[in-house]
Design a protein around this nucleic acid. Sequence first.
DNA 1: GGTCGGCACGTTATAAGATATCATGGCGTC
DNA 2: GACGCCATGATATCTTATAACGTGCCGACC
Lengths: 163, 163
Amino acid sequence: MTAPRTQIARAEVLCRERGVRLTDQRRRVLEILCAAGRPVGAYEIMDAMREGPRVVAPPTVYRALEFLLEQGLIHKIESLHAFVGCDHPEHPHSSEFLICLECGGVAELKDDAVERSLASVTRESGFLPRRRVVEVMGICARCARKEACRRKEEAERSPGPVD
Amino acid sequence: MTAPRTQIARAEVLCRERGVRLTDQRRRVLEILCAAGRPVGAYEIMDAMREGPRVVAPPTVYRALEFLLEQGLIHKIESLHAFVGCDHPEHPHSSEFLICLECGGVAELKDDAVERSLASVTRESGFLPRRRVVEVMGICARCARKEACRRKEEAERSPGPVD
DNA sequence: GGTCGGCACGTTATAAGATATCATGGCGTC
DNA sequence: GACGCCATGATATCTTATAACGTGCCGACC
């Protein structure tokens, strides 16, 4: 994961280059997302913004999110109804996401093989792709290791039937 | 797409084999989904059910949907908040979906290359996958053809600047 | 034959996510 | 200084989803 500070700085540069405005509200939403480093829902973002100078209503948050999505600075995780900062916003892209059911963490991948196979299967169908959603839910490496340790310890304490 | 009647019949058999109950409500939801042949939202299903003998409330619909999902008889399209009947419910699986932005139609694919590449990239990350969401939004072949025809006709009527 | 437990369903209420609509206010252009 | 554009404010509402609790059927078991 990229450091939040860096992500904001890159976003500033990109927006300037593109001639679009990274306003206070928009930057604030981006900051919240980057600082969290995990998927955050629109209303959670709204709550976080209430900490600041003024109260905001849902449309404000959704407008900022819409802008950030358009600029490729964040992604929406459809299966979670939540948003994450993008790890490499330099060029617009769709990514693949690995979502841990245990810790809620999300890893953003960019895998050529996945993209090639998807491109080829859509092409075969005569389908013109515009946006891709690829989300894999499961258990991340860290949580899997933890779980394995836990089981081992348990087994050592009471060596008996195992499920 | 499979004929709705066939899909229901197969579901009956599968449920009997598995020792689970395809109750009236559950079958009704499945019928509505299969008859539609396109993604249908939970509340639209609810409205369709109101046509029948009794009024149903959201939890009833969601419970039926949950059952059908568990049995692999339907799929949820995350990016549409909607559900579709499964084309081949014989063995549990995740599929890839092509969603047309023009006509709203959905095609269910099962592509080995996509699955292999996804499996390999998750394995590399030490990630244990449980459920996959692969949805490609775009324009289906039929709509693309129609659009092409429309443009051609327009060009013939007024041969001028093209966008 | 009664009763106990599990399961499906009913009912009410509400949480969570998203958008429509109209008003306001800053800021640059001409 | 009037106009238009864009971002935001504010209110209301819509859509999607779930929590919590109650009822009734039905088979297992005594």
